[in-house]
């Protein structure tokens, strides 16, 4: 039952090279909405949780404008794949791969995420 899941202290972790970096409690992620996290080297990651509970992480920087805002975009499903639309100029990015769905030439880094 999901209730039990949410009350435990599961942590969201990101894979950075060989290490897992702990970001926050799973309960802090609102389904359908992103948050941003700061990595030790100054990079930023946008973390998302979808309706089914799946977690995704991609670079937070919007490559079209340079602003660190992808975590603040709206999410959705396009042909079965999860995406976020940049809140600035609305280009969509596949959450699993970081590929921009509106411009083949653009892709942002995608990170492996897990709960522990």
């Amino acid at each position: 039952m999901t209730l039990a899941l949410e009350t435990t202290d599961l942590k969201v972790q990101l894979r950075l090279d060989d290490d897992w970096f702990t970001v926050c409690d799973l309960s802090h992620l609102l389904p359908g909405r992103g948050v941003a996290a700061l990595l030790p080297d100054g990079r930023q990651v946008a973390l998302f949780r979808d309706r089914a509970g799946e977690l995704y992480a991609i670079d937070n920087r919007d490559p079209f404008t340079g602003a660190a805002v992808l975590s603040r975009g709206l999410t959705g499903t396009h042909q079965g794949r999860p995406f976020v639309a940049s809140p600035l100029l609305k280009q969509r990015f596949d959450l699993a791969s970081g590929q921009c769905l509106d411009d083949e030439a653009v892709r942002v880094t995608a990170y492996e995420v897990r709960t522990a």
Partner: peptide, 12 residues
């Protein structure tokens, strides 16, 4: 700006 560093402003 950051869930894991609520006191840090976005450096961009």
């Amino acid at each position: 700006s950051f869930i894991n560093a609520p006191d840090t402003p976005d450096p961009v």
